[in-house]
Simulated scan of single mutants.
Amino acid sequence: MPTRRYDDSPGLGSLYARTVKATLRKAEYEPDADGLTLELPEVVIDQDHLASYREVTGFAAGPALPVTYPHVLAFPLHLDLMSDPSFPYKPMGIVHLSNTITQYRPIPLHADLAITVHSGPERAHPKGTVFDVLSEVRVFGELVWTDSTTLLSRSAGDASAHASLLKDPALDAVAWWDLRGNLGRRYAGVSGDRNPIHLFKLSAQAFGFPRQIAHGMWAKAAALASIERAVGLPDAFEVRVDFRKPVLLPSRVQFGYSPGGSDFALYDEKHELTHLVGKLTER
């Protein structure tokens, strides 16, 4: 398995340019389960950046990193992986289906992190091909956090393939969130994810959306921040979310969770459309 190591996080500007180029290229390669691994062996937390992330997602200040924050640190490596010439799928147009994070223990604010990213083997899906981008975070060699981002590359698909989905929980709303039209731009500023579908109405319409949509990982972070404020989060847990329907911006949404926060979901204002469902399991 080839490995590319960085002394610093790769620049997002050049990565986005490469992403566009990768989307326009011809597919001249076969998927490889033993593909490229990317390493960022020493990441020092920028406390100002962390504060900005907390502000836009709703996480309160504390002695440990928000559970979703390492995903932001790994994102440049995700983009680097998917825009590399060896990557078997065109990166633009890929659909984010779900995300699973496992926190083995809280990560201290001032810890130096080592991050690795690679892709998992492909599998059939009714709407194309599914694969995972897998991230790991270590502190002094100890595995403390993992992330599996499940993505769909659309194609003819396999109608007989099984799509693994979380069950929809029956939840009442405990909070109503009024989401402003600039939320996608605010989250893009801290996450680095400047996909045009999140930024402006016109740029989103170019990709078939009526107006800009919220980032899925913002929705996951905001949900967990809300649960943390209300009932707390365990030190060690796994949390998966499935992204069902895009959250258009601006909009008003309902958020609900079960006692203890093990099941949660995000709905539209009328509680008729499900945007996100989540499952939290203590380890």
Rank of each mutant, 00 (worst) to 15 (best):
I45P: 13
I45W: 10
D46M: 10
D46R: 10
Q47G: 03
Q47K: 13
D48E: 15
D48H: 14
L50I: 06
A51Y: 12
A51V: 12
A51N: 14
S52D: 15
S52C: 10
Y53P: 04
Y53A: 07
Y53F: 14
R54D: 06
R54N: 11
R54V: 09
R54T: 13
E55H: 13
E55W: 14
E55F: 12
V56L: 03
V56G: 04
V56W: 07
T57W: 08
T57K: 01
G58E: 03
G58A: 04
G58L: 01
F59S: 01
F59L: 00
F59D: 02
A60D: 04
A60N: 00
A61K: 00
G62R: 01
G62K: 02
G62H: 01
G62D: 00
P63H: 00
P63L: 01
P63C: 00
A64T: 00
A64E: 00
L65K: 00
L65N: 00
L65Q: 01
P66V: 01
V67H: 00
T68P: 01
T68H: 02
Y69A: 04
P70Q: 04
H71G: 06
L73P: 06
L73Q: 05
A74I: 09
A74D: 10
F75V: 07
F75C: 04
P76C: 06
P76N: 12
P76L: 06
L77N: 12
L77E: 02
H78C: 07
L79E: 10
D80S: 15
M82P: 15
S83N: 12
S83R: 11
S83T: 08
D84L: 01
D84W: 06
S86F: 07
S86A: 14
S86D: 13
S86G: 15
F87T: 01
F87N: 02
F87M: 02
P88K: 03
P91T: 02
P91Y: 07
M92C: 11
M92N: 12
G93F: 06
G93N: 11
I94S: 07
V95P: 02
H96N: 07
H96V: 05
L97W: 01
S98G: 14
N99Q: 08
N99E: 06
I101H: 09
I101G: 11
I101L: 13
Q103E: 14
Q103L: 10
Q103I: 06
Y104T: 07
Y104P: 01
Y104D: 10
Y104R: 13
R105Y: 01
R105D: 03
R105H: 08
P106D: 07
P106V: 07
I107T: 13
I107W: 10
I107C: 08
I107A: 09
P108R: 07
L109G: 14
H110G: 05
H110W: 04
H110F: 09
H110E: 02
H110R: 14
A111F: 10
A111P: 08
A111G: 03
A111Y: 02
D112V: 15
D112S: 15
L113F: 09
L113G: 11
A114C: 10
A114V: 05
I115S: 10
I115M: 13
I115Q: 09
T116I: 06
T116N: 04
